[in-house]
Amino acid sequence: MLRETIDRELDHDPRFTWRGGSVTRIENLSDIVFALALGMIVSSAARPETFDQLTANLLTIIPVTAAFGILFMIWNAHYIFFRRYGVADGRIILLNCILLLLVLFTAYPLRFIFDSLYGYIEGVMGDWSRLQAAGINFREAGIIMGYFALGYGLIYFIISQMYAHALSKADLLGLNSSEIAMTRQSIWIFRVQILIVALTGACAVWTPMYAFSGWIMGLIWPAALLVDRLIPVPEADPDAPSTA
Rank of each mutant, 00 (worst) to 15 (best):
M162N: 04
W128V: 10
N96F: 05
G126W: 08
V33Y: 06
V33I: 14
I220Q: 08
H78N: 15
I220D: 04
L226K: 06
Q132L: 08
I80L: 12
A224E: 05
W128G: 08
E49D: 14
R47D: 13
Y152V: 04
F138S: 15
L36Q: 07
I93V: 12
I189Y: 03
A88G: 10
L102W: 01
V233S: 01
Q193A: 12
E27M: 15
A56R: 14
Y85W: 08
V192Q: 08
L104R: 01
P109M: 00
G69L: 14
D7Y: 11
P109W: 00
V192R: 08
T200P: 06
R15M: 10
V124W: 10
M145P: 04
D11W: 06
D52L: 10
A66Y: 04
F82P: 00
H165V: 09
T60M: 15
L29K: 09
L199F: 11
I189F: 09
V192C: 13
S186V: 13
V103P: 00
H78W: 03
P241S: 11
I113K: 03
D237Y: 05
N137F: 09
F157K: 01
G146Y: 02
E9V: 13
F190D: 01
A198W: 05
Y85H: 05
D237V: 05
I194H: 06
R19F: 04
L36A: 11
M73Y: 12
T207C: 03
I187F: 05
R3C: 08
T55H: 10
I155V: 15
V103D: 00
A133H: 13
L104C: 03
Y152R: 04
A164S: 15
G86W: 08
T5N: 13
D31P: 08
W18V: 11
G146F: 02
G151M: 02
L167P: 01
I70M: 10
A66G: 06
G151N: 02
S186I: 11
L58F: 14
V233A: 02
D52A: 15
R111G: 07
T243K: 08
I159L: 15
